[in-house]
């Protein structure tokens, strides 16, 4: 079992981030790696605040513990970036 997991962990996946302004950023990540780490790098590059943004995959908001395998992502899937909405 553990060996299987080890093999899986080295497998890479190509995913894309679709920004709030329609920009597309491709990135590579291991299947069992935490997505949030990758997204943190994205913040740095785009220059957005972490609080003002939501990442969503298939309508599911990505939280700290999510990995590509836990969300059953496939090669080439798209993570969407939304700005926080607030209004009165």
């Amino acid at each position: 079992m553990t060996e299987d997991k080890g093999e899986d962990a080295t497998e890479y996946m190509n995913l894309k981030i679709l920004g709030h302004d329609n920009s597309v950023t491709p990135f590579k990540i291991k299947k069992h790696a935490l997505l949030i780490k990758c997204l943190k790098t994205y913040f740095k590059i785009i220059g957005l605040d972490r609080v003002s943004v939501i990442f969503s995959f298939d309508g599911h908001r990505i939280i700290k513990t999510d990995t590509p395998s836990s969300l059953e992502m496939k090669e080439g899937d798209v993570i969407e970036v939304f700005l926080r909405q607030i209004g009165g």
Binding site: T25, F27, K30, K37, T41, K44, I45
Partner: peptide, 16 residues
């Protein structure tokens, strides 16, 4: 593993 991941995600390898 985590460390290798981190290295992979730093700016130098995180290429466009």
């Amino acid at each position: 593993e985590d460390k290798s991941l981190i290295e992979e995600l730093t700016l130098d390898n995180y290429s466009f």
